[in-house]
Amino acid sequence: MQAFTRMKGVAVALMRANVDTDAIIPKQFLKSIKRSGFGVNLFDQWRYLDAGYPGQDASTRQPNPEFVLNEPRYTGAQVLITGENFGCGSSREHAVWALDDYGFRAIIAPGFADIFHNNSFKSGLLPIVLDQAIVNKLASECESSEGYQLDIDLNAQTVTTPDGDVYPFEVDSFRKHCLLNGFDDIELTLQQRFRIEEYEQARKQSAPWLFDTPV
């Protein structure tokens, strides 16, 4: 996994509640059997005026000039500021892959949908929960000052604005540890192989119906 320690980058605000995974990456792009290449189709229906389909030549697309990510001042944005319940809908990790592939490293919202929140850690994309009032404040600062950058320090668990305002955020200690070090979850879990085997043996005795399945 990609490690996350500290970053400073351009922020962009997309202040809508309930941005769902169909909006983040529409289903026609889920047909890919790869993990990469989803960035050009991030927010496809909002970002382009023409209909998107897999395998299209991106240079022929018509960007929607009204969509915030298409404004030149947000080129290279790395921090997304957004509304409540971001990432609701399907379990598709493609949503995280698309955000990551586009270049986002962190997302700030008053709340995230549960599966999306989980998924984002797996790609080293940091979801940060802050109070609605703070998120609103960051969003309006971001909109009113060009080149607005946020400094995010995972170790200190803080978001710092260009004015020097510092907002602390919570993060689960285990996840923080994995993210700071870029650990591979599977490798870590397999170090406990003996525990899983032990559990399995005991369960086979107490609940054998969970194990004998015909084909």
């Binding site: 379990s91 599977i186 899983i196 399995e200």
Partner: peptide
């Protein structure tokens, strides 16, 4: 429901 990384995690570790 789980994401694809977790699908891999379950496959590899149960």
């Amino acid at each position: 429901g789980i994401g694809t990384s977790e699908v891999e995690h379950v496959m590899a570790t149960q």
